[in-house]
């Protein structure tokens, strides 16, 4: 593996995570709890599609085999997808959606903040744009966590359940491998383990305002999204997302 290959893999991972989460936001479209929130979730979905396109396009350029962003997004199977498993979890309800948006969003925010200092100009440029978007996603989801946690008995239970269920995907947000290590050495990527503490502080602050209990350490933590190890949900999401491209492989859209 050379730096170019590592950077390709790194960009595809970021793009995969963005596109899968955008797909989950798309599922809300037309079904939100109130019109204003429908519009907000669409905005976040649009931000994420934009992030995915940026990183896929760069990956395609690095690979230099004439593939497009869509070739990469629509023509790989679930074992080849490298997104964080958190984002493929179903929406279930608005509490799940907001908790997922917050837990992932805070990690993405920190990662993009560091990547704005990347030695690779394209990465730092894409990170700068994404950073602004994730700043907003974190603000939006934190406000909701606080309102749900400090709202009614029902909302308190729902938001706590979502935190308890999604917690097993939190360690993975900071998982790294040899791809990260190589790019860290070259000044392109950032060390996620150093961001964990700050992430915990962000989570603690919002949880304390919301009255949400942070799950105790030691529970099961799933890993391996970056290596194509996923939950059962991803395959279904992809079979829907990729349907037209797979059914009409020779078509242009």
């Amino acid at each position: 593996m050379n730096t170019n290959d590592a950077l390709y893999t790194y960009c595809v991972r970021l793009a995969d995570t963005a596109v899968i989460l955008s797909q989950r936001f798309c599922e809300w479209c037309g079904h939100g709890p109130i019109l204003e929130e429908d519009i907000a979730m669409s905005n976040m979905g649009l931000d994420l599609i934009g992030q995915a396109r940026g990183f896929y396009a760069y990956a395609a350029a690095l690979e230099n085999k004439g593939r497009s962003e869509d070739d990469i997004a629509f023509h790989r199977n679930e074992r080849e997808f490298t997104n964080r498993c958190m984002v493929e979890q179903p929406n279930y309800d608005f509490a799940y959606t907001m908790v997922r948006s917050f837990l992932h969003g805070a990690a993405a925010y920190l990662q993009y903040r560091e990547l704005t200092k990347s030695g690779d100009e394209t990465v730092s440029g894409l990170a700068a744009k994404s950073l602004k978007e994730m700043t907003y996603h974190v603000r939006h989801s934190s406000e909701w966590l606080i309102r749900l946690g400090d709202g009614t008995d029902e909302s308190k239970v729902r938001v706590q359940n979502a935190v308890d269920d999604l917690w097993q995907f939190t360690d993975e947000l900071f998982e790294m491998d040899e791809v990260d290590q190589m790019l860290i050495r070259n000044g392109i990527a950032c060390d996620l383990t150093q961001l964990r503490q700050e992430w915990d502080q962000m989570v603690d602050e919002v949880f304390s305002k919301a009255g949400i209990t942070k799950p105790a350490p030691g529970g099961f933590q799933s890993k391996g999204g970056m290596k194509g190890m996923h939950s059962e949900h991803l395959g279904h999401l992809l079979s829907e997302m990729q349907f037209l491209q797979r059914a009409y492989p020779d078509a242009k859209w």
Binding site: E36, I39, A40, E143, R147
Partner: peptide
């Protein structure tokens, strides 16, 4: 206008509705 439960959410909603 927008509908919102409080001022902060009104600000966020306004941003999403009138700042697209």
């Amino acid at each position: 206008n927008v509908h919102a439960p409080d001022a902060e959410m009104a600000l966020l909603n306004a941003r999403d509705v009138y700042g697209r």
